[in-house]
Amino acid sequence: MTRILVIDDEPQIRRFLTICLGSQGYQIIEAADARTGLQQSALHEPDLIVMDLGLPDMDGQALLSDLRGFYRGPVIVLSVRNSERDKVTALDNGANDYVEKPFGANELLARIRSVLRTFASIDVPPTGFDDGHLKVDLQTHRVSLGGADIHLSRKEFELLRCFIAHPGRIVTQQQLLKEIWGPHHSHDTHYLRIFVGRLRAKLQDNPTAPRYIETEAGVGYRFMGGVER
């Protein structure tokens, strides 16, 4: 049975999640503060952690950093904080997704299924991508769309490779810039917008109704290829 640790100081949220997630076959472990959450995560080794940022004994951002010192599973932040800065910081600190309160049960369940699918195959790095329309061979650097080869620049290909490596997960602008352009370019978001725009054009991906690259405004991007909607 998949174990989910819920770290939240609101009893009604914990109760709701226990009922909602339990009805889907998940085993729920509860923690009302950061200290208990750290103990429970070490003791029970949950398959997924759902956590709030506003905790009574420690800020959630600090808790995320502490968790990532030993916990390698997925973490979904569930918080009333909705600023871009909070989202980016949480994702940079190791969160795999961010859901705002109030939230819909179906949306949260879909996010949980998505990150669990991703982590189920995390030990097997992708060698490519093929959905019958877009085909990418990461070893030969060959990319085709509808059976026709398309040419990507080195930076465009590195962007696509990074997206494919994190299906369904938000990759922040800073993560992409550091990985592809280097640590000295972590704030050069105009570079990123230009190259993402070029990549989208070559993949014939409409940014207003994306098939592959979805924008999380002010935060980063999510590769939706092969991800259930």
Rank of each mutant, 00 (worst) to 15 (best):
M1V: 15
M1L: 14
I4D: 00
I7A: 11
D8G: 03
E10S: 14
L21F: 10
L21Y: 08
L21S: 10
G22D: 00
Q24M: 11
G25S: 07
I28T: 03
D33F: 10
R35C: 05
L38H: 01
Q40A: 15
S41L: 08
I49S: 01
P56M: 12
D59Q: 13
G60N: 05
G60R: 03
Q61Y: 15
A62S: 13
G69N: 07
R72H: 14
R72D: 15
P74F: 03
I76M: 01
S79W: 01
R81G: 07
S83M: 09
R85D: 08
K87H: 01
L91T: 06
A95C: 01
E100W: 02
K101L: 05
E107T: 06
S114V: 09
R117Y: 04
T118A: 00
F119H: 01
A120G: 07
I122Y: 10
V124I: 15
P125R: 04
P126S: 13
T127Y: 12
F129M: 04
G132N: 12
L134N: 12
V136P: 13
L138S: 11
V143P: 00
G147M: 06
I150G: 11
S153P: 10
S153F: 06
L159Y: 05
Q175D: 14
K178E: 15
I180R: 02
I180W: 04
W181R: 06
G182L: 13
P183G: 04
P183L: 06
D188G: 05
T189L: 09
H190Q: 13
R198G: 03
K202W: 13
L203Q: 10
D205P: 03
N206R: 12
P207K: 10
T208S: 14
Y212C: 09
I213C: 07
A217W: 06
A217M: 09
Y221G: 06
R222E: 06
F223N: 10
G226C: 05
